[in-house]
Amino acid sequence: MIPVFDGHNDFLQRMVDAGPGRDNLWLKGDGTGHLDLPRMQAGGMMGGFFAIWIASPEPLHGPEIVQAMENPPFSIPLATAVPHDHALPSAMQQAAELLAMERTGTLSVVKSAADILAAKDAGKIAAIMHMEGAEAIHDMDALHVWHAMGLRSLGPVWSRPTIYAHGVPFAFPSSPDTGDGLTAAGRDLVRECNALRIMIDLAHMNEAGFRDVAKLSDAPLVSSHTCAHAVAPSSRNLTDAQLAMVRDSGGLVGLNYASGFLRPDGKRLAFSGFDIILQHLDHLLEKLGEDGVALGSDFDGALMPTDLADAAALPALLAAMDAHGYDKALVEKIAWRNWVGFLNRTWGA
């Protein structure tokens, strides 16, 4: 079985929500969601980015929002900023869950590409501590504290504003060019992340912020869980111009499995088969080259396609790539080798 290293999941919030007995959620699963240790092992998922994400105090996806997203066109107002005092306790709780998972002996929180390979050899899940939206990081001193705790990947925004930048709203059809770029604090954040070799994730950032990071950062550009705008013109997907910037930096894009970002009609509805996924992969390969394309599922954070319902279904995705004509070397690059190579370039040896 070809292993898979994944660019994004939201499992930690499920762990927090589970309360007492949450170790069993990780170790045995409960039949819900997309991810747990047994399903990762069944699907050959060797590891990935485990996101710390802060839920907004107000509901985000009521019935009217879901209905709108199932019937494009739609333009959902940008979520409001989350106060630091709300974000920090939630972020700490999710980080604590990841470290508790490590104490079960089944997972390693990794800080280098070598760590990923060591975890793979040891039969453990390689987990990167990632923060999706920097609301819990109030200043650069706090960034250093999080780095000391194991943070190695940071998205300055989710789809809402922070003190650092502006997220892209959920809209279809829409350009990702939806607002202002980095703030002064955001430029400081990019510089300090570069100094600490923390990966800067551009998923959810609007186009102006994306371009500002491209000009300022000395690291390869990356969007961990994103699709191709040319195939599905969602505000969350990357245009060919953005893909060119990623390519020219030696960067990488992880393909998101979220149905609403994959479907050319933009409907947030599941679909069968892998043809749409392969359309996105073909386009990304054309624009980025074979070393610039990887996977970024968004497991436990999005509506999955019918035939890619959870981590256990990953072999079916790889088989579809094979049947589509990708040779074994290319499938292995997309499945895991490109992430490891990119992280080696970003973090250093």
Rank of each mutant, 00 (worst) to 15 (best):
G21M: 05
L330W: 00
G47N: 08
A100E: 01
A42V: 14
K267A: 13
A18H: 05
V66L: 02
D180E: 08
V168D: 02
L216Q: 12
E64P: 07
A114D: 07
L27R: 12
L99P: 11
A258M: 04
A127N: 14
R191H: 12
V213Y: 01
A311E: 06
G133Q: 03
V168N: 01
R152T: 15
V157S: 02
L25P: 08
Q13N: 06
L317R: 08
P83M: 07
A214Y: 03
G186Y: 05
A68P: 04
T183H: 07
D218M: 03
G7W: 08
P315R: 06
P20A: 00
Q279C: 04
V145N: 00
E290R: 04
Q242K: 06
M101T: 13
M131D: 11
I277N: 04
S175D: 09
A214S: 09
G289P: 01
A55I: 11
V331L: 00
G29K: 01
R236L: 12
I116R: 09
P173K: 07
T104N: 04
R345S: 14
A118G: 12
A91Q: 11
I198M: 01
G348K: 00
G250W: 02
G43E: 03
T80V: 09
T104A: 10
E135A: 13
D201V: 15
D275G: 10
L318N: 02
A114G: 14
M15R: 05
G250L: 02
D265Q: 13
I137M: 09
G33F: 01
W26T: 14
L99I: 11
V253W: 03
M45W: 10
A302R: 01
